[in-house]
Lab assay of single mutants.
Amino acid sequence: KKYKVVEVKENKDGTVELVVENENGEKKKITLSKEELDKLKAGDTVELK
Rank of each mutant, 00 (worst) to 15 (best):
K1Y: 10
K1I: 12
K1F: 10
K1W: 09
K1V: 12
K2V: 11
K2T: 09
Y3P: 00
Y3N: 00
Y3R: 00
K4P: 00
K4F: 04
K4Y: 04
K4C: 15
K4A: 02
K4S: 03
V5E: 00
V5N: 01
V5K: 00
V5C: 14
V6K: 05
V6Q: 03
V6S: 03
V6L: 11
V6E: 01
E7D: 11
E7M: 11
E7K: 07
E7C: 15
E7N: 09
V8M: 10
V8W: 12
V8T: 06
V8F: 11
V8K: 04
K9N: 09
K9L: 11
K9F: 12
K9H: 11
K9A: 07
K9W: 12
K9Q: 09
E10K: 05
E10R: 04
E10P: 06
N11Y: 09
N11W: 08
N11M: 10
N11A: 07
N11P: 02
N11Q: 08
N11I: 06
K12I: 10
K12W: 11
D13I: 02
D13A: 02
D13C: 10
D13G: 03
D13T: 02
D13E: 03
D13K: 01
G14L: 02
G14R: 02
G14D: 02
T15K: 04
T15N: 05
T15S: 06
T15A: 03
T15Q: 05
T15Y: 10
T15I: 05
E17I: 09
E17G: 06
E17M: 12
E17C: 14
E17W: 14
L18N: 00
L18R: 00
L18S: 00
L18P: 00
V19Q: 05
V19R: 04
V19H: 06
V19E: 05
V20G: 00
V20S: 01
V20Q: 00
E21D: 02
E21K: 05
N22M: 08
N22W: 09
N22C: 13
N22Q: 03
E23L: 06
E23Y: 08
E23V: 07
E23T: 07
E23R: 04
N24C: 15
N24L: 11
N24H: 11
N24W: 13
N24D: 12
G25I: 00
G25A: 03
E26W: 12
E26Q: 08
E26L: 09
E26Y: 13
E26N: 04
K27M: 13
K27D: 01
K27C: 12
K28I: 14
K28N: 07
K28R: 14
K28W: 15
K28E: 08
K28F: 15
K28T: 13
K29P: 03
K29M: 14
K29C: 14
K29D: 02
K29L: 11
I30A: 02
I30H: 03
I30D: 00
I30G: 01
T31F: 12
T31Y: 14
T31E: 04
L32K: 02
S33E: 07
S33Y: 12
S33M: 14
K34C: 11
K34I: 13
K34L: 13
K34A: 10
K34E: 05
E35A: 13
E35F: 14
E35H: 14
E35M: 13
E36H: 15
E36W: 15
E36M: 11
E36F: 14
E36T: 11
L37M: 11
L37H: 10
D38Q: 10
D38P: 15
D38I: 10
D38H: 13
D38F: 12
K39R: 09
K39D: 14
L40S: 05
L40N: 03
L40F: 15
K41H: 05
K41M: 09
K41L: 08
A42E: 11
A42F: 06
A42D: 07
A42R: 07
A42H: 07
A42V: 15
G43K: 03
D44M: 05
D44W: 01
T45H: 07
T45V: 11
T45Y: 15
V46T: 05
V46D: 12
V46F: 06
E47M: 05
E47L: 05
L48T: 09
K49I: 15
K49H: 15
K49P: 15
